[in-house]
């Protein structure tokens, strides 16, 4: 068990209940160059610091949400529900 993550609906739960889906990326809008595409598919900021990332409360309510976490300390700064289409 590692750090505790607060699900927007269920509250604080051990991180093992959640699925992690990586840092928030920007999908190219239309027919990107190969370079733009591979940058989106493979390359990551991988910051040591505050990172916006996707989580799903897989073992609980099932919601996908966004968290802002400091990757140096695993401190969760905030969680929020996604605003689709943005």
């Amino acid at each position: 068990m590692s750090f505790v993550l607060a699900c927007p609906h269920c509250g604080p739960r051990p991180v093992d209940e959640f699925a992690y889906s990586g840092e928030v990326t920007r999908r190219p809008q239309s027919s990107p160059t190969l370079r733009e595409l591979t940058d989106y598919v493979y390359f990551r900021d991988n910051v040591a610091g505050r990172q916006r990332e996707w989580w799903q409360h897989r073992q609980g309510c099932g919601e996908w949400f966004l968290a802002e976490r400091d990757t140096r300390t695993n401190e969760i700064i905030s969680v929020s529900l996604p605003k689709p289409g943005t």
Binding site: M1, S2, A19, Y20, G22, N46, E53, T71, R72, N74
Partner: peptide, 14 residues
């Protein structure tokens, strides 16, 4: 490895 990215080198009980 743990599935999430991190630079914090503390272990986990699980």
């Amino acid at each position: 490895i743990e599935p999430y990215t991190t630079y914090k080198g503390t272990g986990t009980l699980s």
